[in-house]
Nucleic acid binder design. Structure first.
Lengths: 225, 225
DNA sequence: CCCCTCCTGTACCGGCGGTACAGTTTCGAA
DNA sequence: TTCGAAACTGTACCGCCGGTACAGGAGGGG
């Protein structure tokens, strides 16, 4: 059982990198077995077909993704009591994590599946859909907490605002990869952070001196781009 | 020359729909010739290989995309003198156009190419990159005009803000397709519109009655979701 | 009438996804 | 120490697909 898991993981590692660069249709099983140093029979011992490889790949990717978000935002929650400041810090930490990736973000498997949908079965499509819905719930939960303290300056639907986090991430990845500008993604996250700050931080009605103080406080919470 | 163009266009139409659903790697030439009712030799008469099909597909897509943006934002410019109101109206018109698509947005070829990059030649990757840079210039131009009149409430890089429009569109398409919720994309565009309005409309320092008036004015420019 | 555009038809190649199945190594539990 | 399951290897094969090569034909304009 031990060695089997190890080989399986190695296949998944190689497959993930390949699929993110070339899509599922562009990734051949033969190239995967060549790179992992396994035989074709060995491959099909672990995954009965390409669809099952995709299933395992997607599930693993989503789990890992969730783990990263858990870590970042729970750390931000530990450092900041205020839900807004905590969320803003979380976005800051996320953007730092993204800009620390040496070759830029490798791509999102959810998007890859999205642009390949018709060749997968319902189960994979459902898994993918549920991953996006989980993002919506995650960010929605945090935004609702914020809204209990800070009335938004403009009326917004909380689910749509939560989706905006996912949108900017997915879109930022596409831009970053296409432009070959690794930093674009991190910048987009910070731009989203500006939006959230603007939306929830109370409108300033005091003279300039006090305004400054307010702004410094807001910036100190997570730094300024 | 006449009939040739017609057949070529028919191939591109069929190919575009297929590629947006299944990616390039997932789309076989054989299925394209079956659907267009042409022979294999006929196909290779028009496109010497799959790469050249992709090139033609991408160029046509980008041209069409640019045309749509030209139309929408020049129409908005005709209806509104103020650059901010004109941009906000443009986003409103765009979101209406997107929510009128009967089956939702079919997907963006730029994103498809982005997630297939390694199997294309440099020329296609450059074309794709230039398309995104063109978006940046387009929205950046409009945003700079706005900034000459309205100082932003928070300091923002204009290129990054312009990229945010592309991000939200690309990300919104991924979400919309994955969730199978056609309206999500249009909602995301409206959410972006809220951000732009918040960022540029002057901070309110008057009593509540006047605040209301301001908000109604802002909403009247393009309506509220 | 000829030539050019726009195809069709046929034959073939190698790569790939997938199947089938027999045999082998490895390693822990009984 | 043996047994058996897990984790593979090796070989052979199928049909689809991308791509090549090349011969030929319809149809319309000069």
């Amino acid at each position: 059982m031990r060695k089997g898991e190890e080989t399986r993981t190695r296949i998944l590692d190689v497959a993930e990198a390949a699929v993110l660069q070339k899509g599922f249709g562009g990734t051949s099983i033969e190239e995967l077995i060549a790179e992992t140093g396994i035989t074709k029979s060995g491959f099909f011992y672990h995954f009965k077909d390409k669809n099952e490889l995709a299933k395992a790949l997607l599930n693993r990717y989503i789990e890992n993704d969730e783990r990263i978000y858990d870590e970042i935002f729970s750390r931000a929650r530990d450092l900041m009591d205020d839900p807004l400041q905590s969320f803003l810090l979380g976005l800051k930490l996320l953007s730092e994590l993204l800009s620390d990736l040496p070759n830029g973000h490798p791509g999102c498997l959810v998007a890859t599946v999205c642009y390949y949908e018709r060749l997968f079965d319902r189960e994979i499509q459902e898994t993918n859909r549920n991953a996006v819905l989980a993002w919506r719930r995650r960010f929605g939960r945090m935004l609702r907490e914020i809204m209990e303290v800070y009335p938004p300056r403009e009326p917004v639907d909380v689910d749509q605002l939560a989706d905006m986090v996912s949108s900017v991430l997915e879109g930022g990845i596409v831009l970053s990869k296409t432009l070959k500008e690794p930093n674009t993604l991190a910048e987009q996250v910070l731009m989203l952070r500006t939006f959230v700050r603007l939306l929830f931080l109370p409108a300033v009605e005091q003279p300039l001196a006090v305004v400054r103080q307010h702004q410094v406080f807001g910036a100190a919470a997570g730094g300024q781009p």
